[in-house]
Amino acid sequence: MKQNKNLLPRQLGDSHIRLLRVFKVVIESGGFAAAEVELNISRPAISLAISELESLLQMRLCHRGRSGFSITEQGQHVYQSALQLLNGLETFRSQINAINTDLVGDFNIGITDNLVTIPQMRITRALSALKHRAPDVIINIRMMPPNDIETAILDDQLHFGVVPNLRSLPGLEYQALYKEKSQLYCSEMHPLFNQDLDQISDQALSQYDAVVPNYPQPADIKQQQKILKATATSTDREGIAFLILTGRFLGFLPTHFADRWLAQDAIRSIEPHRRYFDTQFMAITSKGARSNLILEAYLEELNKIK
């Protein structure tokens, strides 16, 4: 009688893979007794699985009995083929998982200037968590004016941005990050520095030169600065700090940015209980952007930090 060459079904199911896994562990453990611990199943169950595999393949795979355990020549060939199959399945699983989970590529973000000293540090801590989670990600940071950040997000040049809450554009998603407090300051070389700064009139302040931003700001913030004698402008807060430190100008700075000079008595705040404003900063992303695993991972880490 001619032997049937098609010993296995055309499609291997989970039950067949399970039998091969049991056989592999038995061979590598050197017998049924040692395989019990590794497989966490009883010796009779292991024996049944090996017998079922031998019946399926129509060949003797191993000797077991009083003389001890040993693998047959056919069993050795089956073991090598099983290794190839099981290793191939594991490689396939790893490669598919890598497609879905490996974070590789560039992460481009745009940030409004001088946020690095803000105490909450949500952006910094989330970037640290992202780099720990995905060491192969390349992070590219650009310090940009808010309008340029919005444009770059909409043009897919940036994945993520941080801007003050000035307006809502229909193509952007907004998420509140934190509020930043700003106060009015003068430097140690300014005529007001040694005066009583807890109470000073609008008229008195209007006599001194001041530096104001030339970037967009909400109406309520602009109202605070209307009383100032604006004789200088700056595109960013660092420029404002430069001019305040000359001793020739008053100007508003974020408190977290000004603290370094405040601690050195190089500047003083003017009527801090009254002359201040809060700026809400937002994280922005594109509504219509293609799915980006790096961005999704970063937003996930950002949302863990409060």
Rank of each mutant, 00 (worst) to 15 (best):
Q217L: 15
T72P: 02
L12F: 01
E54R: 11
D148A: 15
C186S: 10
G288Q: 13
S47T: 06
G161A: 08
A263K: 15
K131T: 08
D198E: 13
L115R: 06
Q183N: 10
H256A: 12
K179D: 13
Q120T: 10
P272E: 08
V25G: 02
D106S: 10
E271C: 14
L158G: 10
L19I: 07
N140G: 00
Y208G: 07
N165C: 04
P216R: 12
Q225H: 08
Q183S: 12
D209A: 14
A297D: 05
F160Q: 04
D198L: 13
L293D: 03
K24M: 06
G110P: 01
G239R: 12
I109C: 00
P213Q: 09
V22R: 09
K179I: 01
D198V: 03
L130A: 08
S269K: 10
L53N: 07
Q223T: 06
S70K: 10
D278K: 11
E90C: 03
E73R: 11
L8A: 04
L154D: 11
N303E: 06
D102R: 03
D113W: 05
D102N: 07
Y215C: 07
Q80R: 12
L262W: 12
S42C: 10
R18L: 05
T255E: 13
D259S: 14
A219L: 15
Y215Q: 05
N4C: 14
F69T: 00
G161L: 07
S182A: 13
V163R: 03
Q95G: 00
L197I: 08
N87S: 01
P164E: 06
A289Y: 02
Q95E: 07
C186P: 11
Q195A: 08
V211Q: 08
P146C: 11
T246L: 00
L7Q: 09
T124R: 13
S291D: 09
T279I: 11
S206D: 12
E296Q: 13
R43M: 00
Y185P: 07
R290I: 00
I305N: 01
N4S: 13
A204F: 08
D106G: 02
